[in-house]
Design a protein around this nucleic acid. Sequence first.
RNA 1: GAGCCGCUAGCUCAACUGGUAGAGCAAUGGCCUUUUAAGCCAUUGGCUGGGGGUUCGAGUCCCCCGCGGCUCACCA
Length: 540
Amino acid sequence: MVDEPKSAGTSSEEDQIALRLTKVAALRELQIEPWGNGFSVTHCCAEVNLAHDGDDAEKLTAAAKSYTVAGRIVALRSMGKLAFIGVRGATRPRDPALTPTGRRATDLQLMLRKDASVGWDLIKYLDLGDQIVATGRAIRTRTGELSLETTEIKLAAKALRPLPEKWHGLSEMETRYRRRYVDLIANPEVRDTFVARAKLVSTLRRFLDERGFLEVETPTLHTAEQAGGAAARPFNTHHNTLDLDLKMRIATELHLKRLVVGGLERVYEVGRIWRNEGIDRSHNPEFTSVEFYWAHATWLDLIALTEELLAALARAVRGSEKIIYQGQDIDLTPPYDKVSMIEYVAAALAPDLRGVSAQLDALSNLLPSAWANFERFASRYGWTGDVREAEKKLAHAATLGDRIAWAFGTFCEPALPKDRPVFVVDFPLETSPLSRKRDSEPRLVDRFELFVAGMEVANAFSELNDPRDQEARFRAQVDARARGDQEAMPFDADFIRALEHGMPPTAGEGLGIDRLAMLLTDSASIRDVILFPLLRPEAK
RNA sequence: GAGCCGCUAGCUCAACUGGUAGAGCAAUGGCCUUUUAAGCCAUUGGCUGGGGGUUCGAGUCCCCCGCGGCUCACCA
């Protein structure tokens, strides 16, 4: 039995690639290299758009300036002796996404006449997706669109695969994440998100540089002993030559504080962190943090600095301190409210007492059963969660601090105000193994977390610099690990040795760059601000 | 990890209680000197995510598996 000859199809992706390859061969017959180089490009599409956005036809004629631009064909309308080619050029970080008249700055239309364009015959070999180089003058078409009256067109790089549909683009999130290169072509607003993210990071660096902070880079490969600085499970890896098991860092904290000991007293690192945890809308296994350490400052200085920083980032990225996130107006204008963990929890369980010390006394005297007073929390904070789940978590809370953190996280956190950032303060000692004890109440630490839109975006505290106290805290972490807490920190003996040389009193803070980027680009998922988020491999 | 939803042509989506898998865009062949999601005529393109089952007959119903999205949980 002989195979039926395949029907001479022309529409499957395979067929389209085959067809484009025949064009490649035909072009080479014509001595045209489909993937040539060395083209002289004098301008970007965006430059033409921004230079002439509001110019009328007379002004354009008077200008009579020749441009040679490059870009990708995203529309192709040919009508015999006249053709219009839609070109999407490069996105440049300093250009606005839209021109003053509201057109996308990267997109420029070419107009070609059969009798006035060198390369007209090339059109029949061109496809949507091809990279081209075009020369011409800016004009207004009869319908008034700014266009390049093209005198010469060249193929710069042939595309073998078809682009997604021009109107709806590429919409399936899975494909957009897996083939970000196509997403960036088909959905140009994705480019805007990553331009905004880059602006956020550069503004952050400038902010810290201007205040005398030194940017450094510390190891991302940690020994088991070094892999602390946060409550998280690390990724494991291995160095072959040293035959050494290593872990990817879960924080930059401990190395940066070693540098403060060494005299780099204002120091920061923007860097990749890996945490071997679940994935959801606000967690990716690898993400970017900035941590900065500021000798002779306290957590209260960090509150002021954080307010200033957030407002500056919002102005730089969004042009305003008032932003909208997922439909919610959020005002980032300082100052921000402070909410006490202790007071919030005590308000439900020990409502008559004033002052955190008295409230702590009362909370520490509560019977275990008294903590499970879900009705009190529900009536005060509108909690509607799963009682059995909450009880399960409470059962794991070994210390008073753990119970306070449980109650706050479970009941109070969802009730925090949503229209402005909030500093959560008065953290219990047990949940803060690297923070300095509060002088006036040693059951608490000098620490805050900043919440915006229900997300933790910053964690900061006055650093613990008493080496013997740090040693005891590490030991408590080792004990917790022995009890089954897989996120407890290891005992980092070298870090203790560093503290024994004397670290000046220091305040330190960590910010989640990805979450800030979500906020300032109005992105619902962390995957939308990470170019290549981690996904399971595609099925074969 | 649990629940819900999704996976159909290169892309975006249809296909009622099971009855011959369809449209638009893209592609291919034509016509066209001002288009704007260009238009008109014609033509292709499918293992309906994978596997099993029920049935005369499965995109549709049942079971298993894969990948993704959302919600919850875990996790800070």
